[in-house]
Design a protein around this nucleic acid. Structure first.
Lengths: 239, 239
DNA sequence: AGACTTTTAAATGTCTGACAAATGAAAAAG
DNA sequence: CTTTTTCATTTGTCAGACATTTAAAAGTCT
């Protein structure tokens, strides 16, 4: 039950991380140089460097070389957080062998939360993106991976239509992390056209700012997706 | 516009990360030792170590010392991902100076997505947690921080009631990252009792498995929270 | 004086070699 | 066969050196 003391580099990373999280170090502020930090913490420069690499991996700091270089508190941007969130979510799903139904339920529940906002606020740009993806999805030559990627892009446009970046960020994990699971479903021509049709109806409803129609169609899409997943897994068991 | 080549340690980290993400390295598999990796990548051991620290910071690997030690592909657990997600979300909100209204909108929209599922699946345990937190929130001596922490615990129970771990994970960022913003609102005795009353009604509705009543009350709570926030910020501007 | 070039100092990035500490496995002792 | 000791392996830490990058300072020419 005893937790051994973590490595020095981990301790130092924690110490600096705390300073950043509760605001004692502010964005773009420069940390002391590696030499100064090693004196301050009374460790070697290598140990300090390992601590800084840890923080860099979490996008908490960035480093610049040269005379005026050093480690700076990083301004965490949506894109960085977004990418990390997707990677982590994807691994979480695959490593914990989450059932397809569970992941799909979460994804569609969260997406449904965006629909009323998106119906109210979507711009022509969002609608154009959705239409473009729908068009791509109906191309016969499209690979399965391409279809799934386009599916993700369609749903991201739906989510972004809500005009709330916090919502978009949180949804990223749910929607994008599903892609590998979705890829496992080999879409038939028939199921593709069904999905394209549902996508079109969702886009139409959002175009008309009809939140309840969009919500109802999204529910249809959710059930259909879960059904497809069940069929696929049943076939995998029997085959 | 030119992107300089990233550091060697970053390149090596990427290379190993890719191997983990697309499954060429599986959970609990042992990576080559630092000496072997340094030979393989033709860099020094320090460089390899910095790469490994980066991966460790993302919970992708863990390291063990000793004869049979080494770096192992880590089984990413919900708790690890959860903690990271909360830290990142919190920083994202503070560093991008997200408006209270935007964050609150995202939070309540996502929570609303859980309500129907939670009404259907919540266990007595979830209800007991909610009641306990409501009781704590009505104690007069409770600090503002304590009240907010209890608020988070209440809402987490609501989300967990949906019985979907993926949903709980995704919601963690939205709910917990709000806490520092919520802490900024100094609750009066009057607003606390209003919130406690709304929490009670939500718990009652979930107890009765009445999803629409729970949803309606959550909407009330959302409006009330946003109103409190607006009042607070108006006062901050004038004062 | 002003514009251009060179030098220099500071900082991170990388390498080498060494030793400490942890830990399981093999060898030795009983 | 069990216990103890030794040992080899591996990560953790340290010290010192050199390479590379960068901006500022110093120098040079017009």
């Amino acid at each position: 039950m005893k937790k051994r003391a973590p490595d020095l580099s981990a301790q130092i990373a924690s110490s600096i991380r705390d300073a950043i999280v509760d605001g004692r170090l502010i964005v773009d502020e420069r940390l002391p140089s590696e030499a100064e930090l090693s004196a301050e913490f009374e460790v070697s420069r290598s140990t300090v460097r390992e601590a800084l690499k840890r923080l860099g991996a979490q996008s908490l700091i960035r480093t610049e070389r040269g005379a005026t270089g050093g480690a700076f508190v990083n301004h965490l941007r949506y894109e960085d957080a977004y990418a990390q969130h997707v990677t982590t979510s994807t691994l979480l799903l695959s490593m914990n062998s989450v059932h397809f139904a569970t992941a799909a339920e979460a994804r569609f529940a969260l997406e449904a939360a965006c629909v009323p906002l998106s119906a109210a606020r979507r711009t022509p740009d969002h609608l154009a993106t959705m239409r473009a993806e729908i068009h791509r999805q109906s191309q016969p030559g499209l690979s399965d991976e391409g279809f799934c990627a386009s599916d993700v892009a369609f749903h991201r446009a739906l989510v972004d239509g809500a005009g709330n970046p916090v919502l978009s960020y949180q949804l990223a994990g749910a929607v994008e992390a599903m892609q590998p699971l979705m890829n496992m479903i080999t879409f038939t021509a028939r199921s593709r056209s069904e999905i394209v049709s549902l996508h079109s109806r969702i886009a139409d409803a959002l175009d008309a700012r009809d939140a309840s129609a969009a919500d109802a169609t999204l529910s249809e899409l959710a059930s259909y997706t879960v059904t497809l997943g069940q069929t696929m897994f049943a076939k995998a068991r029997s085959g």
